[in-house]
Design a protein around this nucleic acid. Structure first.
Lengths: 195, 195, 195, 195
DNA sequence: AATGAATGAGCCTTCATTCAT
DNA sequence: AATGAATGAAGGCTCATTCAT
C-alpha cells in the first residue's frame, strides 16, 4: 500500500532499526536485510534510500550524535551556575535515552569502526570536541586553566570507560552509580583546588 | 620437509599474526587467510591447529590477557609500598608493550566482540576482576574500604577510556600523559582522604 | 499538470534517449532508469508506454531501421543511373546521421543482441534483405547476374566490417575513407567485368 | 577428489567453458555460475583462479587471440609465395576452429565489449595490427604500396563483416563461400594492378 | 607437518517491474 | 499523464571450512 511522502518515515525507521540491530548484535557486522527486516521493509528499499550500507551506517551514527547534541543543548539551557553546567553534561551522557545497553552497544561498535573508517573518525572527533567544549564551558569558571583541561579530559575518559563497561552487559554500572563515580571525580578535583 | 615439534612455534606465530592483523585493520573482521598469510602459513594450517576461527581468536585474547597478567605480576613483585603497588598497576596498563596502537586496537576489538560472545565476555571479566584486585591490593591500605572501591572503579574506567581515545589514533594521549591523568586522579583521591 | 497527447512525444523522446544511452555506453546493458532519466521522465513511465524493456529496445531498433530505410528511399529517388543507385546506397550507409559513433555503437549492440533474440534477428534480416535488394537494383544492370550477387554480398560485408572498426573508436575509418574503400571495391568489380 | 596441479587444467576448462557459454548465449552477459557450471566446478573456484569476472573474460579473449595467432604463424610457415601468404591469412580467419558459430559469437561479443573496456580494446588492437601486418607481408610484394594498404584494409573489413553475418546464425555464409568472397576481392584487386 | 583444491552459504547491490495515488 | 514507493530475483564476490594428498 504505497503512499507518497514516505521517505522521511522510512529513513527514520531504518536508522532506528540500525541502532537497535547494531546494539543487540553488538557490532557493525549486521546485514542490510536484518536492518531492513526490522524496519519492516525490503533490503532493496534500504539501498534505495541510503545508497550503500556504509551510508546507512554513517547516517545512523550522525543521528546518534545529533540526538546527543540536542539533549546536551537542552540540558545546558536550564543550567544556572557553572557547576550546574558540568553536571548537566555528565547527566546527559548517562541519560535514559543514551545509556541504554542497545545505544551503548551501538556507540562502542562505532568507536571500533572509526579505527578503519576516516569518515566515522571525523564524526567521532566532532563529538569529542563538543563534549570537551561543553565541559570547559563550566570548568573554566571553577578551576585554573590547566586544571580545567585535565579535569575535562578525565571526565571524558571516564565517560567512555563507563560506556565500555556498560556495553559488556553484566556486572555493569547502572546509571546512578555511573553518574556518582564521575561526579565524585569532579568533586575531588574541585575540592583540591586550594591544595 | 616437515619438522617435528612445530606446533608451539606455529601456534605462537599465528597468535602474533592475529594480534597485528587485528590491530592493523582495527577489528575482528579479519580473514583467516590474512592471519595465516602474515604468519607465513596456509589458512588450512591455522584451522589444523586451532579448529575454528573463533578458537584462534579466543586463544589470541587469552594470550593478550596472559601477557598483561604476567607483566603485572612482575611489576607488583618489585613494588615496596602500597602506594607503589597502585602506580605499578597503572604503569603496566600503559606500558610500551600494551599501549601500542596495534595492541590497543586489538583490545578494543575484543571488547566489542565480547558483546556477542559469552566466551569473550568471560575472559574480559577475568581481566576486570584481576585488575580490580590488583588495584585494591594497594588501595586497601591507603583509603577507607568504600573509598578504595570507588577509586579502583574510577581508575579502571579511566584506563578503558584512555584506551578508546588512543585507538582513534589522532589527537590521542601518549603514554606519558595517559599515566599522568590517571595518577593525578589517584593523587587527588588520596589527598582528599582527610576531607 | 498532465497534458494530453503526450504519448507520441514521450515515445519519441524515450527512443532517442535509448539510442544515445546505448551508443554512449556501448551495449544494451543500460538500465531503464538511465534511459528514462535522459528522456527526462521516470522509469515507470517508460514501462507505461512500452511495456517491458525488451519492447522499448525493439522499438528503438525499429526506429533505427526505419530511419535508414527512409534515408535510402530518399537517396534512391534522386539517383539517375544504375551506377548512381549503388553509390547512393553506399553513401547512405555512411551518411552523417548513420555513421556517428553513437549510432554505430547502438547498431553493433543490436547485432550482438540479435544472437539471442529472435525478434531482433528478424528485424536485422529485414534490413539485410533491403540492403541487398537496394544494391541489386543498381548492380543488376551493371554486372552479370552471378557477379552482381557476389558484389552485393561483398559490399554488404564491407559495410558491416567498417561499422565494427568504427565502433572501436580509435584508429578508425572516417566517413570519407570508408566510402572510398567501398567505392574502390565496387569500381574494381565493375572494371573487371570484361576479364 | 582434489588433486594437486589442477590449476592449469581448471583454468583451461574455465576458459573453454567461457567461450562456449558466451558463444551460445551470444553475449558477455553470462554469469560466473553458468561458466563454472559448464566447466564442472563451483563459481567460487572460478573466482579463486581468475579473480573477478572481468579477469576471466579478458583471459578468455587473450586465449582466443593467442589461438588465432598461433594458427596464423603455422599457416604462414608453409606458405611459399607472397600470394600464398595472403591466402593463408584469409584461410586461417575462416578455418574450422575459428569460424564456428560459437567462437564467432564470442568474437562479436568481445568486439562490443571493447567499446566499454579499454583493456579489451587494447587486445583487439593488437589483433588488428597483427592481421594487418600479416596481410601486408604478402601484399607488399604484389601491389604498389598504397594499393597494398587499401587491399589489406578491405580484406580486414570483409573478414569482420563476414563474421558478423555468420554470428547471426541464419542465412549466413559458410566457410567456403566466405573464403571465396574474400579471395574474389583479392583477385580483382590483383588483376586491376595494371589498370 | 602442511597445503592446494574445492565448495556452500551468505551478503551487498542492482534492476526490471508493479501498484496506488 | 506521471511518479514515488516498493519488492523479488538474481549476480558477483568473499570466506570459513573441509578433504585428499
Amino acid at each position: 500500500m504505497p503512499k507518497v511522502g514516505m521517505e522521511p518515515v522510512r529513513r527514520r525507521a531504518l536508522i532506528d532499526a540500525a541502532i537497535s540491530t547494531i546494539g543487540e548484535r553488538g557490532g557493525l557486522d549486521v546485514t542490510m536485510s536484518q536492518i531492513a527486516g526490522r524496519a519492516g521493509v525490503s533490503s532493496a528499499l534500504a539501498h534505495h534510500y541510503f545508497g550503500a550500507k556504509d551510508d546507512l551506517l554513517q547516517a545512523t551514527m550522525r543521528h546518534l550524535l545529533a540526538e546527543l547534541a540536542s539533549e546536551a543543548r537542552e540540558a545546558l539551557k536550564t543550567a544556572r551556575t557553572a557547576r550546574d553546567r558540568v553536571s548537566a553534561v555528565i547527566a546527559v551522557s548517562f541519560s535514559a535515552s543514551q545509556f541504554q545497553p542497545e545505544t551503548v552497544g551501538a556507540w562502542l561498535a562505532f568507536y571500533v569502526e572509526a579505527q578503519k573508517s576516516p569518515a566515522m573518525r571525523r564524526l567521532l572527533r566532532v563529538y569529542a570536541r563538543r563534549l570537551h567544549s561543553d565541559l570547559m564551558s563550566g570548568l573554566r569558571h571553577l578551576l585554573a586553566a590547566e586544571d580545567a583541561i585535565v579535569a575535562a579530559e578525565g571526565i571524558a575518559a571516564l565517560i567512555d570507560g563507563l560506556y565500555i563497561r556498560r556495553a559488556l552487559k553484566e556486572d555493569t554500572p547502572d546509571t546512578v552509580s555511573a553518574v556518582r563515580l564521575v561526579e565524585d571525580y569532579l568533586e575531588t578535583k574541585l575540592q583540591s583546588r586550594g591544595t
